[in-house]
Write a protein that binds this DNA or RNA. Structure first.
Lengths: 181, 181
DNA sequence: GAGATATGTCAACATCACTGACGTATATCG
DNA sequence: CGATATACGTCAGTGATGTTGACATATCTC
């Protein structure tokens, strides 16, 4: 009797049991928190914030980006972008060049210092992700039950979390498991 | 010159080729953006924001949470928490009960309406994650080359992104691949 | 030359975070 | 019991980042 209606049929549908997926939802929160935590701290020393990081990141990795493209990527208003972009340009981390085919465009590039700074930030984030891929945290040694790819996603996300925090996250989620019974 | 493939020879280090990992870093950004996008829009109708969502989420899933525990989970100050918590209590979505073993504690619970609202938010997020696990987006049909679990992570994160946005993300990242040569 | 487009900017405002200080209720310990 | 610590609440001020709305300027397109 497929209760076909909504969506998450924990029973027989090809989809995930809800309990495990709930864990993934929370792991995503914790993983993302730590994922942006490193750059946040590094940039704070320069007086920059996460918004500056996002601009630096995309300009560094996609040199020659236009303002419009950047706005579309970041999904913020041009006023919001302009505030942080102005900081970065004034401090010489980003430079603008007038577009050659369309002189209205301001193509964005990192300066030497901007590239150095951003490479540093990227290095830290890439390292965290690469390690999480290489050494996912095996959480459920029950093996065998990963037809769906939960354990893989769970191991990856848990490995993205700061090691000292993992115990706290695990014991929190164990608490839900208990109260479900 | 090592033939075989582009450039990224993970060769000896157990770690990931940097190019692919860069993609994962960005996919994480886009995936998280869309992951929180649904609840953001739903809560905006109630005049609530993301901070309210986080409180509702953890109180709903871990009934009886204390203020201190919630502060530790969210990593914000009690002043920040209090602002949103006050909103939620005044509007009857969350109730406080004095702790029985320690009467200083205020144990947090969702009311009926709070539970209904939060279940709705959770449903949307769980659905997105469950689908991404069940139907990861196969991006590199080259197969075979996933000894490290990149393709799996990439497929999961891409599937977390709003379907209409995937083409844009793909073409953006293709642009980096091009400029690397 | 008219109108669309790309960008910059001013002003006002909302959300969500922070610090610092202080108040109250309750628990714990000597 | 009294001192001290803990859990929580709150006032006041500030900063980062987002929003809307309006308007200016340069440049492209027709």
């Amino acid at each position: 009797m497929s209760m076909s209606g909504e969506d998450d049929g924990p029973a027989d549908s090809g989809l995930a049991p809800e309990g495990v997926t709930n864990d993934l939802v929370e792991l995503l929160f914790f993983a993302y928190r730590d994922f942006v935590g490193d750059p946040d701290r590094m940039l704070a020393e320069y007086g920059f914030g996460r918004a500056h990081h996002r601009v630096l990141h995309f300009v560094y990795h996609y040199p020659g980006l236009t303002i419009a493209e950047l706005l579309d990527i970041l999904r913020i208003t041009k006023q919001s972008l302009n505030r942080v972009l102005k900081d970065l340009i004034e401090q010489g981390h980003i430079v603008q060049k007038t577009g050659r085919s369309d002189r209205r465009q301001r193509l964005l590039y990192c300066s030497e210092t901007g590239a150095t700074l951003t490479a540093e930030l990227t290095r830290v984030q890439v390292r965290r992700v690469a390690r999480a891929i290489a050494d996912p945290v095996a959480d459920e040694p029950k093996g065998a039950r990963d037809e769906h790819g939960f354990a893989a996603a769970q191991g990856f996300l848990m490995a993205m979390i700061e090691p000292e925090e993992r115990a706290a996250v695990r014991s929190l989620m164990a608490r839900r498991a208990r109260s479900r019974r």
